[in-house]
Design a protein around this nucleic acid. Structure first.
Lengths: 194, 194
DNA sequence: AAGCTTGATGTCAGTTACTGACATCAAATG
DNA sequence: CATTTGATGTCAGTAACTGACATCAAGCTT
């Protein structure tokens, strides 16, 4: 048996999520999180750069999925197709833990600081996607546009998935949302009801 | 002559921008900003909710422009068209102060906390746009998608405008970017090089 | 004009996120 | 067995932000 309980980082993340849901992000102190995990405040800050980051541990892996998927995509696909596939692959990962995602999102929705952090994680995903596209020979502005609009679609899809009465499968929702995207951004041809 | 120098809020905002550019956001204390404006730290926090907000004073007006433009848009246009027009109108405002925007963006680019704040302002714009669209009878998911992808396009346009060698006119860049958007998100027809 | 009210500002004390420097101590290592 | 290492703790400090109360010129009332 080791000197300390195992998985300090995981215990901290778990304790933080519980407390953020129980009493809200700003009525939770880092000292409380650490105490619930059987550790001290100082140790919390060795694992997480700040009080918000504790909810965003998986974002590095997700970015890797995006980048790898784009890197491995067939060259025959359009940029937006590559982006859609990458985000669907990421969605397949996230989609496996809907219960957790819902709890986490409940905490985030209740606090602006956490929303800011979520947004910058999504922005980082967009940046990684755009870089990956450029490595596939796709120039700006297409690379940037495909990445940013793709992430925009992902946001919409994620929200629909998380608030739905039952689990429709995040990957599937993402694909449906990308189908709708094409119709929405098409030039003003239809609907010209003159 | 009044008891105090006029325009305390403006002086604080000016001093903050200067200091953020001169030595960076996190090497600037609120006390320093206040001192440069001839005020105290406490007064700073009466005008701005936090140290970041001081760079985002205009965001309320911008949202109003977006909402008003969508509300007044001809019913014959598509949702994405309404969004494009609204963002172009907002762009016309911002576009008049390129020098200021560049300085401000230099400060933001150098600091993650400021980037987070900027992202949530953009997200708020998207939310307002979506709400305005719904008031025009456009349902989800179209309203949400048009708003989010529109703001995504705006981001790309703004970045191009701000980094360009010379001022091409933000409104014009926005319109060009929306034109490219349709091509990017179109289904995989072209480019099918099999 | 004397007195009262108001509103912008200042002062001060307190909480909490976060950081750097140093201490501890069981386990791994040689 | 002595040494090193790595995860944790302790402690002191900075700075963002908040609440409570004080100040005082300008304007209003009578």
């Amino acid at each position: 048996m080791g000197r300390w309980e195992p998985n300090a980082q995981g215990r901290l993340a778990q304790a933080a999520l519980e407390l953020y849901v129980e009493r809200g992000f700003d009525r939770t102190t880092v000292a409380e999180i650490a105490a619930r995990a059987g550790l001290t405040e100082r140790t919390f800050f060795r694992y997480f750069t700040d009080k918000r980051e504790v909810l965003f541990g998986g974002s590095g892996e997700l970015e890797a999925v995006l980048v790898d998927t784009v890197a491995a995509a067939p060259a025959s696909g359009s940029p937006i197709r590559m982006v859609a596939d990458a985000l669907a692959a990421a969605g397949a990962r996230i989609g496996q833990r809907r219960e957790f995602s819902q709890q986490r999102q409940r905490a985030i929705s209740a606090n602006v600081d956490l929303q800011e952090r979520e947004l910058i994680k999504l922005a980082a995903m967009a940046t990684s996607l755009a870089d990956a596209l450029r490595r596939r020979g796709i120039d700006d502005p297409v690379a940037g546009l495909a990445a940013e609009t793709g992430v925009a679609a992902f946001k919409i899809a994620f929200e629909r998935w998380i608030t739905a009465a039952e689990d429709e499968g995040l990957e599937r929702v993402i694909r449906e949302t990308f189908d709708q995207l094409a119709a929405v951004t098409a030039p003003t041809a239809r609907r010209r009801s003159r």
